[in-house]
Design a protein around this nucleic acid. Structure first.
Length: 570
RNA sequence: UGGGCCGUCGACUAAUGGUAGGUCAAGUGCCUUUGGAGCACUUUGUCUAGGUUCGAAUCCUAGCGGCCCAGCCA
C-alpha cells in the first residue's frame, strides 16, 4: 500500500453507502457479501464484483462475507468452490464469514411454511409448460393457476410431502401468491421451490426440494445482516420480489443495489459458454492462459494488482457498455514494468558469427536487472563468438526507416559490443541462415568511447550458453470484439480465433533462466512480459524444458509505423 | 398502448443544480544502451425538442436510441 491515499473517483455505490453511514442507518455498520454460484471458475467480470464488495466494505470499516449461492445442485461442484476461494484470495481479499446458501435450507423451509400459513404461498400441481402459458406475456397479464386457492391445510400437507420425497421431479412447485397481473413478470406468483431429486455437493441427499434464487438470496442476505447487497443490473427487476419476501417475513431489511457488469472486447464472459469451451476441449482447461478466468489470467502472468487497478479505473455505473481489452493490457504492462526482471531471449533465432572475436573466448557482460528498480541489481551474461539474434532484427534489404542490422550497418548488442554486418550465408531456398559480422573491441558493454552513435540496440543470446525453451504466444481467444456476434443460427465458437495460440518450440534464453520457477515473471527485452508456465515441470516434478507464456507484448511503435506505411516497405 | 434501467470526447468513466475533469486510445515534442518505458504538451464530448431555475449533463415531460425481463438457472 502506498503512503499517499490514492485519489478515488467516487461512484454511486460509494455515495449510497457514505450516505447511509452518515445517517447512521444500521448504526453505521457496513456489511457486504460476494455471492458466486459454484458452477464454474471466476472470471475478470467477477473481479469487478469482488473489488466492489470487498473494497467498499473495507473503505467504511465494514465486513464482507463469501457466500456460495448453491441452490441448484445439478450445476454445482466442490471443485468450483475450491477454485473460487483460491481466486478470491489470490486477488488479494479475505472474507470475514464463509457461508453457503445451503446452510440456510432449514430456515428457508420454515419461512416457506410461514408464508403458507399466512396464505402467501401455495403448492401448484401445474406442469412447467402450464405455468409458462399462464404467466402471460410481456404485454398481457397472466392467469391464476387453478391451484392458487387451495386451503392452508392442503398446502401445508402437500409441501411437507414434497419435502418428504413423495413426488417426482417437476410434478409440483411451491409458489408465492402475489399478483398474476403485475407488469413485472417476477411478481407473477414466482416459483419458490422446485422438486429436484439430486445430490447436493454439501447437503447430499438430505433435500429433494431446493429453493429458487429469489427465495434464497434476499433471505440469505438478511440472515447475514447484509446492509448493502450489490448485484448486477439484470437483477433490478427482481428487487421488488427481494423486498417482498423480506417484508412478508419481517426480517432484517438488506438493501439490493444494482450496478453494471464488466464487459470486455474480444472476451467471453458467460460462465456457461466458458464451460462449453473447456468441455469441448477448445482450450486446455479453465486455467488456459487465453481464458478470461482469474486462474487463466494468473497462469498467463497477470498480477492481482494489475487486475484490481484495471477494475478500479474502469469504474462502475449503471450504463451498459464495453471496455476495451487494450485498457486491461495497459494496466498489466504498467504493473509488470515496475516489477519484472529484464532478461534477453531470442524467440526466432538467427545465427550471428563474429569473425574477429577469438574462437574460444567467453566474456561475462554486466546487465541491469531492472532499470525501474536499482535494488534489483545486475547479473552476468556470457558473450561469445557465435550468438543468436532475432530474425526480425536483420534485413538484407532494409526498408526505409529500418534501424536494425543490415549489411554494412552497425548496431549495438545490448550490454555487448557494437557489431557490423559483413556478409550472409543462405540455404538452398535463399533464406538467410547465418550472418557474419565484425565487432569493435573498444565498445565493450555497449559504450562507444569515441561517442559515435548507433540507431539501434538489439538483444542476443550466446549460442553455446543458450537454454532451449518452449514459448507460447497468445492472441485473443476470439477474433471478434463481441464473440457473440454471429449470423442467425450461428454459434459463438465460430468466432474462435484460430491463431490464438502459437507455440515456438525452440526459443533461446540467456542461461540465467535455467530452472526458473513456475510463475516467475520476466520481461524479455524488446519483446514483452513472459512468465514460467507450470508445464515447465515434468511428470516427476522435476524441472523439464522451460515453458514460457507471453503475458502481454510490449507496445511496439515500430510495428505501428510499419503498418501505417501500408506494408509498402516490405 | 407491458415494466425496469440507461444515453457525456473515438472508448470507458467523473462532476451536493454552479469551471464539463480523469483514464485508455490517438497525435506532437523531448529523452533513451529495450524503436519498450518515461516526461511534457495537444485534439475532440453532455442524444433531440420543450419545461422548471439566476443557473441543468444533473430535476420534469415527450421523442429517438440501447440494454434487461416471459427458467421448475443464478
Amino acid at each position: 500500500m502506498s503512503a499517499a491515499p490514492e485519489p478515488r473517483p467516487s461512484n454511486f455505490l460509494r455515495d449510497i453507502i457514505a450516505e447511509d453511514v452518515k445517517s447512521n442507518k444500521h448504526g453505521g455498520r457496513v456489511q457486504t457479501r460476494f455471492p458466486p454460484e459454484p458452477n464454474g471458475y471466476l472470471h475478470i467480470g467477477h473481479a469487478k464484483a469482488i473489488c466492489l464488495d470487498f473494497g467498499l466494505a473495507d473503505e467504511f470499516g465494514g465486513h464482507t462475507n463469501l457466500r456460495f449461492d448453491d441452490t441448484n445442485p445439478e450445476k454445482e461442484d466442490v471443485e468450483y468452490v475450491e477454485s473460487i476461494k483460491n481466486d478470491v484470495n489470490w486477488l488479494g481479499f479475505k472474507w470475514d464469514g464463509l457461508y453457503y446458501a445451503s446452510d440456510y435450507f432449514g430456515q428457508l423451509y420454515e419461512w416457506a411454511v410461514k408464508l403458507l400459513k399466512d396464505g402467501k404461498a401455495y403448492v401448484d400441481d401445474s406442469s412447467a409448460e402450464e405455468i409458462r402459458k399462464n404467466r402471460g406475456t410481456l404485454t398481457e397479464p397472466g392467469k391464476d393457476s387453478p391451484y392458487r386457492n387451495r386451503s392452508v391445510e392442503e398446502n401445508l400437507n402437500l409441501f411437507e410431502r414434497m419435502r418428504a420425497g413423495e413426488f417426482p421431479d417437476g410434478s409440483r412447485v411451491l409458489r408465492a401468491k402475489i399478483d398474476m397481473a403485475s407488469p413485472n413478470l417476477n411478481m407473477r406468483d414466482p416459483v419458490m421451490y422446485r422438486i429436484l431429486h439430486a445430490e447436493h455437493h454439501r447437503t447430499g441427499n438430505k433435500w429433494c426440494i431446493y429453493p429458487m434464487y429469489d427465495f434464497a438470496h434476499g433471505q440469505s442476505d438478511s440472515l447475514e445482516k447484509i446492509t448493502h447487497s450489490m448485484c448486477s443490473l439484470e437483477f433490478a427487476d427482481h428487487q421488488p420480489l427481494y423486498n417482498w419476501f423480506i417484508e412478508q417475513l419481517g426480517i432484517f431489511p438488506s438493501r439490493q443495489i444494482e450496478f453494471d457488469r464488466l464487459s470486455l472486447t474480444y472476451t467471453m464472459m458467460s460462465k456457461r459458454k466458458l464451460r462449453q469451451l473447456v468441455e469441448e476441449g477448445r482450450v486446455s482447461g479453465w486455467d488456459d492462459p487465453r481464458m478470461p478466468t482469474l486462474s487463466g489470467m494468473r497462469r498467463r502472468g497477470y498480477t492481482p494488482e494489475a487486475i484490481r487497478n484495471f477494475v478500479t479505473a474502469a469504474g462502475v455505473s449503471r450504463t451498459n457498455g464495453i471496455v476495451e481489452l487494450a485498457m486491461l493490457e495497459h494496466f498489466v504492462r504498467e504493473d509488470l514494468n515496475k516489477r519484472s526482471l529484464r532478461v534477453m531471449a531470442v524467440l526466432h533465432p538467427l545465427k550471428v558469427v563474429i569473425d574477429n572475436y577469438p574462437e574460444n573466448q567467453v566474456e561475462e557482460m554486466d546487465a541491469v536487472n531492472n532499470p525501474e528498480d536499482a535494488s534489483a541489481g545486475t547479473r552476468k551474461v556470457p558473450f561469445s563468438r557465435v550468438l543468436y539474434i532475432e530474425q526480425d532484427d536483420f534485413r538484407e534489404d532494409p526498408p526505409k526507416g529500418y534501424f536494425r542490422l543490415s549489411p554494412g550497418r552497425e548496431v549495438r548488442l545490448r550490454y555487448g559490443y557494437f557489431i557490423t554486418a559483413k556478409s550472409v550465408v543462405k540455404n538452398d531456398d535463399g533464406d538467410v541462415v547465418e550472418i557474419h559480422c565484425t565487432y569493435d573491441p573498444a565498445t565493450r558493454g555497449g559504450n562507444a568511447p569515441d561517442g559515435r552513435k548507433v540507431k539501434s540496440t538489439i538483444h542476443w543470446v550466446s549460442a553455446a550458453h543458450a537454454v532451449d525453451a518452449e514459448v507460447r504466444i497468445y492472441e485473443t481467444l476470439f477474433s471478434k470484439e463481441n464473440p457473440d456476434d454471429v449470423e442467425e443460427g450461428g454459434n459463438f465458437t465460430e468466432n474462435l480465433n484460430p491463431l490464438s495460440l502459437e507455440v515456438i518450440a525452440s526459443a533461446k534464453l540467456e542461461p540465467s533462466l535455467a530452472g526458473a520457477a513456475a510463475g516467475n515473471r520476466y520481461q524479455f527485452e524488446r519483446l514483452g512480459y513472459f512468465c514460467v508456465d507450470p508445464d515447465s515441470v515434468n511428470q516427476d516434478s522435476k524441472p523439464g524444458k522451460p515453458v514460457f507464456n507471453r503475458t502481454v507484448a510490449l507496445k511496439d511503435t515500430w510495428a505501428k509505423v510499419e503498418k501505417k506505411q501500408g506494408g509498402k516497405t516490405q
